[in-house]
């Protein structure tokens, strides 16, 4: 089975890109399944089912979605192996810009959209910098100049990635992404012993454990303070 991790800021078009790309893979006779990781709510599982893609969903609730992802991905992979899927796509929303959901030697795709602002590529951490493929969406509604500037910004933070444009509504570009994914495919039988490409955002303080009161005396553990003096 091939595992592909797809990540990107909320509403960047991940689900649309995956469904359009999966349709291309299924046309080639491959069995494609998906798992959707989100925080509080998602209806994307319905969209997957409607497209004929078996899906599992996981809501992290009060936990950091990244941590939730990494604690569950192994079980998801086992589910995929048992069902003999050819391709398993994991979709996770990068809810903070520090998200880092990619696994070493597992195909990593970041989906980011032209409308998110030209400084966005700079703001996103490992989720963009460590992706193998960067898919840029919503190019059909901005000018050619803006597309070129945005792509150049993406290239500056991740020069090694392949950058491609996909229209999530029409599916233009999905065929090409599907061929790319199949050229770079790598069979896996387990994730045991695999490593993340980058450490995840950490948090271990009293607020993680349900503290709601504000004030220094309630803050324990990994607490970080802004430096109010040094800033102009």
């Amino acid at each position: 089975m091939n595992l592909i991790t797809i990540s990107g800021p909320p509403s960047s078009g991940k689900t649309s890109v995956i469904i359009k790309t999966a349709a291309q893979l299924m046309q080639k006779g491959l069995k494609v399944a998906a798992v959707k990781f989100d925080c509080l709510h998602t209806d994307d599982d319905i969209a997957y089912e409607r497209a004929g893609i078996p899906v599992k969903k996981g809501l992290s609730g009060a936990l950091c979605p990244d941590h939730y992802f990494v604690s569950n991905i192994e079980a998801v992979v086992d589910w995929g192996l048992q069902n003999q899927f050819d391709v398993l796509v994991s979709e996770s929303a990068g809810l903070c810009n520090r998200c880092s959901p990619y696994i070493k030697e597992i195909m990593a795709v970041c989906v980011i959209d032209n409308l998110s602002g030209i400084n966005t590529p700079k703001k996103i951490g490992p989720m963009l910098r460590m992706a193998d493929i960067v898919v840029i969406t919503k190019g059909d509604i901005v000018s050619q100049a803006e597309r070129e500037v945005f792509a150049a910004r993406v290239h500056a933070v991740n020069p090694a990635a392949m950058v491609m444009h996909i229209n999530g509504l029409t599916g233009q570009g999905a065929f090409e992404l599907a061929s790319l994914l199949m050229t770079g495919r790598r069979e896996i039988t387990s994730l045991k012993g695999s490593k993340l490409r980058f450490s995840m955002p950490s948090a271990l303080c009293s607020y993680c454990l349900g503290e709601t009161r504000i004030g220094a005396s309630y803050q324990m553990g990994n607490v970080k303070k802004m430096n109010m003096e040094e800033q102009p």
Binding site: N114, Q144, E148, A161, M162, V163, E176
Partner: peptide, 19 residues
């Protein structure tokens, strides 16, 4: 296909806007 600095095709359509 992958040269991000230089794509073969530039596009102009009625639906495009400056944002």
């Amino acid at each position: 296909r992958f040269a991000s600095g230089r794509k073969l095709v530039a596009q102009l359509s009625q639906n495009m806007n400056f944002v």
